[in-house]
Amino acid sequence: MTTQSIELRHTFDEKVYGKRLDLALSETFEDYSRSRIQDWVKQGFVKVNDEVITSNKHKMTGFELVEVNAEVEVAGDWEAEAIELNIVYEDDDLLVVNKPTGLVVHPGAGNQQGTMVNALLHHVPELQNLPRAGIIHRLDKETTGLLVVAKTIGAHTSLVDQLQRREFTREYDALVNRVMVSGNSIDAPIGRHPTKRTAMAVIPDGRRAITHFRVAEKFLDHTHLKLRLETGRTHQIRVHMSYLKFPIVGDPLYSGRYRVPNRITPELKDILGKFKRQALHASLLGLKHPTTGDYIEWTAPMPADMQKLRDALVANREHFSNPEE
């Protein structure tokens, strides 16, 4: 990962008297979110009248010269690769991708190539100049569905700000173990698992995490859920469903040991035995367009493997509900 230098300069008038430094800067440099500016202040990238200020609560008095010399991470050394992308929408500001299972979003240790970022850089080379190649939010490698990517710094700032304000609409389809009676919400903090390095868990000192869910369809020993994220913690849906004892089918990290139901056809048993990834799909994404301000939604149907599993669950339910005489 490399960085790009950002240099900003502005002389304020008397109207900023009494305002916090971060507020005055975010109102002036509208292409950058307040949270990003707050980080720059904390890191010592901001000078007021040639003095480095590291407190966002610093009060402005008016007629100050403020200089910002910051660094933002950009794609840099990541390589562009001709990897096919399922793009469901694109304009000058953003694009929306329907991610398949098995595709890693960002390059990392052991995954420098073959990722969504590599594919995006081939499709839009200019993304190398944006933080995280324009990607606003992530999906786990085996989770499928909709992701939004900013194509300009202005769009990136707007979308990150919306996400931080919890203004995105994000709905998921999940097939979970056990039969859930009704929908509900869970507000349980999530943090790093105390003993499993690669896992997250509900822990008292974790970050607040809120998931809303409703029952879409019930089967004999499984449930099809529709879930909406209010927050966006790592593995949030997977952790919350496991915590509630309704782990997602096939989840290799959170589902635990699989219990074969008593009423199951050989066909369903075979499909469940071969389903080796979490049955989780980001099916709906909604946000305000960064330029027009209009609210837009996109949808993506469940991928073939989840649809096949869902159909097998339906057939299994019908088989035991209407036994042959």
Results as ranks from 00 to 15, higher is better:
124 V>F: 11
85 L>E: 01
96 V>I: 12
69 N>G: 10
58 H>A: 02
31 D>Y: 12
20 R>E: 02
44 G>Y: 08
112 Q>I: 10
98 N>K: 11
51 E>N: 14
40 W>L: 01
88 V>E: 03
135 I>C: 04
91 D>Q: 02
125 P>T: 05
114 G>H: 10
19 K>Y: 14
112 Q>T: 12
99 K>G: 08
19 K>D: 14
18 G>L: 12
19 K>S: 12
84 E>K: 14
76 G>I: 05
23 L>Y: 10
121 L>G: 03
127 L>P: 04
67 E>I: 11
135 I>K: 01
54 T>C: 11
128 Q>E: 11
99 K>Y: 11
49 N>H: 07
53 I>D: 03
35 S>D: 14
100 P>F: 09
35 S>H: 13
127 L>F: 10
108 G>Y: 10
97 V>N: 03
121 L>T: 04
114 G>L: 09
82 A>I: 00
118 N>G: 00
77 D>M: 01
93 D>C: 12
57 K>S: 15
124 V>T: 13
122 H>S: 08
127 L>A: 09
112 Q>V: 10
71 E>S: 12
130 L>D: 05
128 Q>G: 08
86 N>M: 10
80 A>L: 00
22 D>Y: 06
120 L>P: 02
82 A>M: 00
101 T>G: 14
26 S>R: 07
72 V>T: 07
58 H>V: 01
34 R>Y: 08
73 E>M: 11
102 G>L: 07
19 K>A: 12
19 K>F: 13
34 R>G: 02
34 R>F: 06
34 R>T: 02
106 H>L: 05
78 W>T: 00
120 L>H: 09
52 V>G: 04
115 T>Q: 04
44 G>N: 09
77 D>I: 01
78 W>G: 00
114 G>S: 06
37 I>W: 07
44 G>Q: 08
99 K>T: 14
113 Q>E: 13
103 L>S: 09
28 T>N: 05
31 D>W: 13
67 E>C: 11
99 K>D: 11
56 N>I: 15
105 V>C: 01
64 E>T: 03
31 D>H: 15
76 G>N: 10
123 H>G: 02
33 S>K: 05
52 V>Y: 12
19 K>M: 15
28 T>D: 05
65 L>F: 11
103 L>D: 02
108 G>W: 12
117 V>R: 00
92 D>T: 08
67 E>G: 07
28 T>L: 06
77 D>T: 06
89 Y>E: 13
86 N>A: 13
96 V>R: 03
33 S>P: 06
79 E>G: 00
62 G>M: 04
135 I>D: 07
69 N>Y: 15
103 L>V: 03
72 V>A: 07
113 Q>N: 15
131 P>W: 06
21 L>T: 10
58 H>P: 00
105 V>M: 05
62 G>E: 05
77 D>F: 09
86 N>H: 15
22 D>I: 00
115 T>F: 08
134 G>F: 06
66 V>C: 01
106 H>R: 08
49 N>R: 07
116 M>A: 10
28 T>R: 12
124 V>I: 14
29 F>Q: 09
91 D>P: 02
41 V>R: 01
82 A>N: 07
32 Y>V: 01
18 G>F: 12
